[in-house]
Design a protein around this nucleic acid. Structure first.
Lengths: 195, 195
DNA sequence: GGGATGACAGATTTCAATATCTGTCATCCC
DNA sequence: GGGATGACAGATATTGAAATCTGTCATCCC
């Protein structure tokens, strides 16, 4: 069992590969097992269902895609600048992935949509990063103090949905997209600012 | 030909009825012709294609759904109040339709998505209504003067997408939806306000 | 003449038979 | 013992033949 031990991580990697090659509609557990040279029963020893395996792949992908954001949220710059940088990093990462490999991006959009709980957890994480920035901005007197930081974070997240929700990905390559994004961030920052 | 003359309007009405009953996936031109008691060739005398007929139905539905908005845009109240009322009317109309008859709403969501030009034209109309309100607000000194009204209107429209884009319809019945909407409108209005 | 018709070709959809997949579990083998 | 296996039942997907639909047009009929 020594060097040939099949790890959960290996299965996730194989599943990611199969999804990349076949797409979400065609990728099967049997494909994953075949890629690993084991029977599909073995995969079910590590994951209770196909959905759970796909959820694990999705979770890892979402975490990696937004790995740079926590550092921005807790950075040393002023909160308003950090908020702008954070939103730009989120939009930039999504846009780059969507344009670099549209098929793969579409695959992960489907995966994220199908495992709602993974997505919800991810979005909650992002919103709490935003909330940290906003709370510090309120403490510094840069942002208006009326309003709970987490609620404001959710509102800011909703207001910028067009620039991070995958359903809008086709619009991110429009000529005016980056200009519109900058203007929207400007509006949001003026909305948050202390009077 | 006197009283039995088949009008374009009658065909649109029959098509609307067929779409309501069968849904966008099943409704056919033959169904529409059958409902009118004519051959399907006759329908093609009035519309160049199935897509054009469906586009006509969509156009009429969109116009009727938002018939109340122009009056609000040109109303007598202050621009900031009008902006809030206009956005509330838009969200309210969509939400009511989505909750009253989800199937019909889904049908029209599909129709709107499939005939992009009709939708684009409709959105342009809505944005120009917003632009009128914003321009007046700038003239009155209520809104900041930096920024072209039409661009600002587009940004406001994008910022509130979550509360009018049909893809988000499932979220409109969430308990927090109305509260979030009010908070978002508040943020947008503060963002537009003159300092 | 001008609008309605229905036969037609090619494209699309439906349907049922067939194949594959998901998830379980008794069995195997190191 | 503990992990891997593969046969199995029910669910889902694929496939190809048959049916229907879209769009055209020569013809009909008021």
């Amino acid at each position: 069992m020594a060097e040939t031990a099949l790890t959960t991580e290996q299965i996730i990697e194989a599943a990611e590969d199969v999804l990349r090659r076949f797409g979400p509609a065609k990728a099967t557990v049997v494909d994953v097992a075949r890629a690993l040279g084991v029977s599909h029963g073995t995969v079910y020893r590590h994951f209770p269902s196909k959905a759970a395996l796909r959820a694990a792949v999705t979770r890892r992908w979402l975490d990696r895609a937004h790995a740079a954001l926590p550092a921005i949220a807790t950075g040393s710059q002023s909160p308003d600048r950090r908020l702008r940088l954070w939103l730009e990093a989120l939009y930039g990462a999504k846009k780059r992935k969507a344009l670099d490999d549209p098929e793969l991006f579409a695959t992960y959009s489907v995966l994220a949509a199908e495992s709602g709980s993974v997505l919800d957890e991810h979005l909650t994480t992002l919103e709490s990063q935003l909330a940290v920035i906003i709370a510090e901005g309120q403490d510094d007197g840069i942002f208006a103090r009326d309003g709970d930081p987490l609620t404001l974070a959710q509102i800011v997240f909703q207001a910028t949905a067009r620039f991070h929700d995958p359903v809008y990905a086709p619009l991110w390559s429009a000529p005016a997209a980056d200009r519109d994004f900058a203007a929207l961030v400007g509006l949001v920052l003026r909305g948050l600012a202390a009077r």
